[in-house]
Design a protein around this nucleic acid. Structure first.
Length: 771
DNA sequence: CTAGGGTTAG
């Protein structure tokens, strides 16, 4: 089916990454306040940045970029106009107090334009603004997200007080400019201004965001010295700072030593547990909190539900959902968003959808949660539809939305749609967000364009651990292990520490080409040199590596000695290796293990049956087939798809639903003829069905990947590479056939199966038949 | 002037 993205793409002719937009800091447009005033009251001459305003940041990181979420044009102008009229109506009666009220109104409607009008009017009025009014101006700019202007006001103030400093520091800390916030904090102390609990809190928040435990501890020492330790707010900020810096013990210590607690204290501790992988402690603390009599609020529920989400604790989530209903928090937007998220992450997409649909008030997070939910656990088409619906409902996508949508396109390998979204990010300035660029790296990698992925990666101004991981995983999936491992070294040279997922990428790079020694090396050094405890995913990689390399006993032994709880994936990798190396007994054992964990896993039955068939154990094949019938398990349809003109064309084996079915099958026949002439012999062992030999050949030739390739060939011009995606491992016979096809038609065929990429060219596959 | 929270990228 076709999905049209409701985007105005006319203005963008090219999807290529636009270098000029890569660093909005070079393009920052300052909102200038004209001292002469009056001209600025003319709506038409208001010079105000409408897209993004950069604030210089020594860190060079991505948080430096703010995007003012523009409201629909008319509405914005209306707001400004009404405020201006209000100002005019007041005539000469305007005094400081009235201006303060107006500024608060600007904050309420989030109108920096309106605020600027008020500012201009203050200047024009000729009154000498006292500290209170200036602080409110500062606050207005900060709250409207225009730190540049706040800074300008601040710099011109002759009489700053503690509040002025606090507003500015808080503004920077709140918007992610931690270094600037700490710089201001230091400057403030140098200038001899007394700090209070509020400034300490803000400084600690800056440390928390920067993850700078050292400075955090220095500030703590200062807090103790000045006697602010007993303030609840300071305690809360300390808990948060330690938790965000990953030092959960320190956070606990502070929490335990506090003399009194409020809802914030409990929530901060809860969140600390949840973010550091102590989800169960978080849930226990939530229970303790209920016993203590402390009231929960929407933040508390949001946090505890998040803890449930990352652990897949659906039962607890439902209980908490019930609790929010009982105490009337059910319809709070934050709670609802958390509910959408928890249901989606636990795989209960229908429940998530219900909560979303029944929401009376939706904000950007609500849409993002639902879109991400569909992208990860439902289906990509629904995610894209919702993305369109969201815009029809007048909700502007943000960086989170776009990262999710790009990730959805990556999963579906819909390169053309992905390119449209890429263009959209260029046009709207969202390309400035590292999360969006990282998602683009994965998009191109997962669509088979590893070169394009690399180009995007290289253009990221300051790659973070996710960027590096994305490109490493990309190379690993394409079988370019050397490049993957080279980049792994490079990332460390530039000072980026690999994390848990980076190692999944590194180990899969090794397993994809059979680098056994290197795999062991990386596996062993994880905890030794990087302080990362290998998890079940890493163990699964090792089983895959050893098994596929033919070291089946070593792989089995490895599973038996594993320190973490085994998963179906671990056994599935062993089963896959048994299939490759034809080990019937171990395969049977692995299959049993998988079925203990996932009794309805269709693929396991199929592979087991394939193993028996390859060993000519037809009795056993029959048995497996009977077992499947008994248990009501149907063979999962292998599905392959190609994207042509932004439309996804999907095929299952023997499928005749496509309108061009006749031509597709004709092409398949034609190709088969040519292939046979060149020496192709169908491998009928790949056929599970109990049918005549001749019929088996036909079944093979009508496998979903063949249909997709044939359709790709008849729908695109010569020399265009064909990109096919398959939801399962590519079948042995199809792999062989595709090599022939690539040579016959003289085209590159890129096939992504569930594990990796196969680049077929001139009769050869990039995997070197090791897959 | 207010700490605390929900959505994202691998």
């Amino acid at each position: 089916m076709q999905i049209n993205l409701t985007m105005d793409l006319l203005a963008v002719q090219t999807y290529r990454y636009n270098n000029k937009l890569s660093n909005p800091l070079q393009h920052k447009q300052h909102a200038s306040i004209s001292e002469s005033g009056s001209s600025n009251l003319n709506i038409n001459s208001v010079k105000f940045p409408c897209n993004h305003i950069g604030v210089s940041n020594s860190s060079g990181g991505f948080k430096t970029i703010q995007v003012i979420k523009r409201k629909p044009k008319d509405e914005g102008i209306e707001q400004v106009r009404s405020i201006r009229n209000y100002v005019y109506q007041q005539g000469t009666a305007m005094d400081s107090h009235a201006y303060v009220l107006l500024l608060l109104e600007c904050i309420r409607i989030k109108s920096p334009l309106g605020g600027q009008q008020v500012h201009a009017h203050v200047i024009k009025s000729g009154i000498e603004p006292e500290v209170l009014l200036l602080n409110n101006l500062l606050n207005m700019y900060v709250k409207c997200g225009v730190l540049d202007c706040a800074r300008q006001v601040f710099d011109k103030m002759s009489n700053r007080n503690l509040v002025s400093w606090t507003i500015l520091i808080m503004g920077h800390a709140h918007d992610g400019y931690g270094k600037e916030a700490l710089g201001l904090f230091r400057q403030m102390r140098r200038e001899g201004v007394e700090t209070d609990q509020m400034t300490f809190s803000c400084a600690l928040k800056a440390c928390a965001d920067l993850g700078d435990l050292q400075i955090g501890k220095q500030i703590y020492a200062h807090i103790v010295k000045t006697g602010f330790e007993s303030h609840v707010s300071v305690g809360n900020s300390l808990v948060t700072m330690y938790a965000k810096c990953g030092s959960i013990e320190d956070a606990c210590n502070v929490f335990d030593r506090m003399t009194h607690w409020n809802t914030v204290s409990w929530t901060a501790m809860l969140s600390g547990y949840a973010q550091n992988g102590y989800e169960e402690d978080a849930i226990n603390l939530f229970c303790e909190m209920q016993w203590s009599g402390e009231k929960s609020n929407h933040f508390t529920f949001g946090t505890v539900l998040q803890a449930c989400a990352s652990m897949g604790f659906i039962k607890q989530a439902r209980e908490i959902h019930g609790h929010t209903v009982r105490i009337g928090f059910e319809y709070h937007v934050t709670v609802r968003n958390a509910l959408v998220s928890v249901y989606a992450k636990c795989g209960f997409i229908k429940d998530a959808c219900k909560v979303f649909d029944e929401s009376t008030h939706r904000n950007i997070v609500s849409w993002n949660s639902m879109i991400a939910g569909y992208g990860h656990h439902g289906d990509g088409e629904k995610a894209l539809k919702l993305f369109c619906e969201m815009q029809q409902a007048g909700m502007k996508p943000d960086d989170f939305t776009l990262a999710s949508i790009l990730s959805t396109c990556a999963t579906r390998a819909t390169l053309e749609q992905g390119k449209l979204v890429h263009a959209y990010t260029v046009k709207t300035g969202f390309l400035a967000y590292i999360s969006v660029m990282n998602a683009l790296v994965t998009l191109y990698a997962k669509c088979g364009s590893i070169g394009e992925a690399r180009r995007v990666f290289d253009e990221i101004p300051a790659q973070n651990v996710v960027s590096w991981t994305a490109i490493i995983v990309g190379y690993a999936q394409h079988g370019f292990e050397k490049e993957a491992l080279k980049l792994f070294q490079r990332m460390q040279q530039v000072g980026i520490k690999p994390n848990y997922i980076t190692f999944v990428g590194v180990l899969s790079a090794c397993s994809n080409v059979g680098l056994v020694d290197e795999g062991w090396h990386f596996f062993n050094c994880m905890s030794r040199d990087y302080d990362i405890v290998p998890g079940v995913e890493h163990h699964a990689c090792m089983v895959d590596l050893l098994g596929r390399a033919g070291l089946l006993d070593e792989a089995e032994d490895f599973i038996k000695r594993m320190s973490v709880q085994s998963s179906a994936t671990v056994w599935r990798n062993l089963l896959g290796a048994c299939r490759i190396h034809g080990n019937v007994e171990m395969g049977k054992y692995a299959a049993e293990k998988i079925l203990e964990l996932e009794p309805h896993d269709v693929a396991t039955y199929v592979i087991l049956s394939n193993i028996y068939a390859a060993a000519c154990r037809w009795d056993a094949v029959t048995k497996v087939r009977a077992m499947m019938k008994d248990r009501g398990i149907k063979k999962e349809a292998g599905e392959s798809w190609v994207e042509i003109n932004s439309t996804v064309h999907s095929f299952v084996s023997g499928d005749r639903l496509h309108p061009q079915s006749r031509q597709i099958y004709a092409k398949v026949e034609e190709l088969t003829e040519q292939m046979k002439k060149q020496g192709y012999v169908p491998n009928t062992l790949c056929v599970l069905h109990d049918v005549e030999e001749k019929q088996k050949e036909t079944i093979l030739c009508h496998h979903s990947e063949r249909l997709a390739i044939a359709f790709g060939l008849i729908s695109t011009s010569a020399e265009t590479p064909i990109r096919v995606v398959k939801n399962l491992r590519v079948c042995d016979d199809c792999h062989n056939a595709t090599k022939f096809i690539s040579k016959i038609v003289g085209r590159e065929i890129v096939m992504r199966d569930i594990n990796r990429f196969h680049h077929f060219k001139d009769g050869l596959c990039s995997c070197g038949d090791y897959w």
